[in-house]
Design a protein around this nucleic acid. Structure first.
Length: 132
RNA sequence: CCAGUUGACCGGGUGGCCGCUGUCGGAUGGGUAACUGUCCGAUGGAGGAAAGUCCGGGCUCCAUCGAAACACGGUGCCGGGUAACGCCCGGCGGGGGCGACCCUAGGGAAAGUGCCACAGAAAGCAAACCGCCGGUCUUCGGACAGGCAAGGGUGAAAGGGUGCGGUAAGAGCGCACCGGGCGACCAGCAAUGGAAGCCGCACGGUAAACCCCACCGGGAGCAAGACCAAAUAGGGAUGACGCGGGGCUUCGGCCCCAGCCUGUUUCGAGGCCAGAUCAUCCGGGUUGGUUGCACCAGGCGUCCUGGCAACAGGCGCCGCAGAUGAAUGGCCACCACGUACGCACUCUCGGGUGCGUGCCCUACAGAACCCGGCUUAUAGGUCAACUGGCAUU
RNA sequence: GGCCACGUGGCGGAGUGGUGACGCAGCGGAUUGCAAAUCCGCGUACUCCGGUUCAAUUCCGGACGUGGCCU
């Protein structure tokens, strides 16, 4: 199968979500992002919104807006990683451009090195330079 | 014009860019397989409640020869509609509203049982606490044996009400009116309504208390059920059975002999156990896919016929969601609606109209096997019929 | 998606037609030099809305919330 860089996998299994919850996290008001290295080549994306967030039209709408934001910045996802987006209620009121900007910075934060005393961005910059 | 009642309907629109998913047609790949990917074109894609899961069905499996009875549960004025219903329509009784209209689980309490707390003398067979009345006795305070149920008091409820007569005091004791019971007969399919006449009045409430009567109901649910593939394991239980020779045979087996011997046990025996073979049955845990699954009590109509209506029959047209970490959307622009503020004009305070800016960019809410209902949530708007009031003609 | 069960004080938890126990916690008092322990006393909506009944936490219907089971 021809695996282009843009094609994304969808996470569907409970075990995949639990695995991603052990990885690095970053949060904004509209969503939380979890990421972990994976054996698959294509990046995997999963969405989850808890029942506490609202009723089903609101939960569906949150997932749709996040899905649209993910396709808008699909190139930012690193290969061989799984991502899980945890939807929050604020995703309903946030403007779409703000949503995309937040998602881009969160992806960067998740891949930044963990040690706080050494805010090294070389590795991340190297990755970003490979893209056009 | 104002206030209101009932019924029906709508539930943002247009354009652009980027996507999701079903079906059909074509092209081309992948997988051991069940199956499935990619591209192109055409075409479809949430609701009036999709919700709650409160009723009724279809469908599937289980049980059952079939049915009935008992138990349990439900329903409950009458007639009709319906596949069916606890739903709908029409009518009746009761209650509310000036009215249009609204509400109403509304069978049986003289078949039986239970309960009616507190208060009160007494809570259901009637009786008599304070009282009233005359009589006898009296120490003049009252006591005794009778008559009575009007008045007081209690209570949610006290065995008809008001008035007059009557009486020792009273009482349906008598009478008038009202209420109540039985009710020939009349109207109606019926519920029920009307009603001559009779009865001084016997019969409190509660059945969403047990119960009686009539009718209905077998249970579970599409995570029902059917099939396929992979994989764990050659699992467990029961039964039959060794090899050889001979005889009989309906060719399935049966009988005789005691030669051979995998293990173990035994005084001993293919007698038992285990192993091996065959047959039948049972089961754990792990996933994935297909089907069930979208053409049927189907939808629509200024249509026709019957009916007050619910609805039924006919005619014509249409094919109308099928997801599974779960599609039906994301963003932008304009318009309409709503709302807040400001300005201007007008006016019977209220309010109305126009312009600008901001907000919400819509309320309630998302199909999950499918239908018929009920209930609950719902911004705002439209239409029709009717009622009351004011003004005018 | 389907099928069940349960809502009583701040918490746990009886009661089931006649106004509600009990324990822990809290508050006040007694005791003590001061506390603890002990003793006495106190309070708070029976989840909500209708109906039946003279009377409902209880019976009936509806709503809301919480929890469980089935692949």
């Amino acid at each position: 199968m021809d695996q282009t860089e843009r094609s994304l996998r969808r996470l569907t299994k409970r075990s995949q979500f639990l695995r991603a919850a052990r990885g690095n996290r970053a949060g904004r008001s509209a969503f939380g992002l979890q990421a972990i290295a994976s054996s698959e080549a294509a990046p995997g994306i999963g969405f989850t919104v808890t029942k506490k967030t609202g009723n089903s039209p609101e939960r569906n709408r949150i997932k749709r807006r996040l899905r649209a934001a993910v396709t808008a910045c699909a190139d930012d996802f690193h290969p061989s990683h799984d991502y899980v987006l945890v939807g929050r209620r604020e995703a309903l009121g946030e403007s779409f451009s703000r949503l995309v900007a937040d998602l881009t910075t969160c992806i960067a934060r998740v891949h930044a090195p963990k040690s706080p005393d050494k805010p090294n961005t070389h590795g991340r910059a190297g990755h970003r330079n490979t893209r056009p």
